[in-house]
Design a binder for these strands. Structure first.
Lengths: 209, 209
DNA sequence: GTCTATAACTAGATAGAC
DNA sequence: GTCTATCTAGTTATAGAC
């Protein structure tokens, strides 16, 4: 296993757990059992390492997600919001085959990216992977055409918030579910829990005046 | 205005904007125009300063919120989820009278507290202000008795995520709403947008198996 | 490519003069 | 209570030997 990949794996794990700001290059290199200088040799800077960690997942995920949503948009069938959100399940869970705990790690990283580091990652994702977003918006529009663009903007943002926040604390939630309710649940279970919630939220009657 | 309050105000502003990890004591004291050593003199440590910033708001908010929810629980009338969530509006907006941008700052801080600093703030809030949570759970239970405790746990967490995530990026959202939709909106408007969403989410049909 | 050593800087915290 | 000066320990990043 190459030094570069050892760094990527360690960084991914630590970033997901403690955030980008909260993780130092020393922690990463010591967990990866490589030299401190290797990060800058292979990636140039910490910021580029963050991008590399995210890109590894996004390059795997975005084509699957794009085509999964494309199918829904192209189909002649009527479409429900639960179906739209369910289109995320298979591509997201496929990250578990790509890498151990891939789904969970990726979603936690996404959550971190939206709250750490003053939105640089948000900029990176929306500019680098715009097709995922536009296909998703098109699918929601097809499922719920009455929603105005403005309401859509708000509700998709709320949805993003629900998902990334949930995922960035999913380890704690899974522990609580086991201790308090004696329910073993995994990341796929969390995804199944959240879909009815966000689908109902997006489909809510129009807001208070 | 006392040094202690100058520090609290500057810290509040910077913590809300850049997170607890992302803000240094040097930034705080230079914005507050006080000496660096004053933080440790008045508060002892950065961690205690964080608690002090949060406590200032929580001590203002929690009695209002507790009694606002208590009224709903005690009433003989049937209760809807929108009513339960609407019980937050007035106490939250009252923070604007207590302090300029109080509502927005507090909610942003709350969002930071859940993602920065590995959950120490979550522990602090749930142990220091347990009555708010228990009254809230009781009100939701009254409005929607079919919800099992387990479903309740998940959905209230999703709701928390929606709200704190939305609020921690509310400045950006308000800008986008103005630029893209030509709609001037303030924090009260954001709250009115989010209530139908979370109420519908909590009331969603039971999750996929 | 990988290492050691270190530069250059920033963090939180404190001792001690005033 | 407030200041300066400083300590200790951490950070990212790099120069140069191997």
């Amino acid at each position: 296993m190459s030094t570069k990949n050892k760094i990527l794996d360690a960084a991914e794990y630590l970033f997901a757990d403690k955030g980008f700001n909260g993780t130092s290059l020393r922690e990463i290199t010591s967990q990866a059992e490589v030299n401190l200088a290797a990060v800058n040799y292979h990636f140039g800077s910490k910021k580029e390492l963050i991008k590399a960690v995210m890109s590894r997942y996004m390059n795997e995920l975005s084509p699957r997600l794009e085509s999964s949503l494309q199918v829904l948009c192209d189909s002649e069938q009527p479409l429900t919001l639960v179906e739209v959100f369910s289109a995320f399940i298979e591509p997201l869970l496929s990250l578990n085959e790509y890498k151990e705990n891939g789904t969970s790690n990726f979603l936690q990283l996404l959550g971190r990216g939206y709250t750490d580091s003053q939105g640089f990652l948000r900029w990176f994702l929306t500019t680098q992977y715009p097709n995922v977003i536009s296909n998703f918006v098109a699918a929601v529009q097809k499922a719920y055409p009455e929603l105005t663009p403005e309401e859509m903007f708000w509700r998709l943002h709320f949805t993003m918030g629900t998902v990334v926040f949930t995922m960035s604390s999913s380890d704690a939630l899974i522990d609580i579910a086991e201790n308090d309710f004696n329910k073993k649940i995994d990341i796929a279970g969390v995804i199944r829990q959240v879909i009815p919630y966000v689908a109902a939220g997006v489909a809510a009657p129009i807001s208070l005046p």
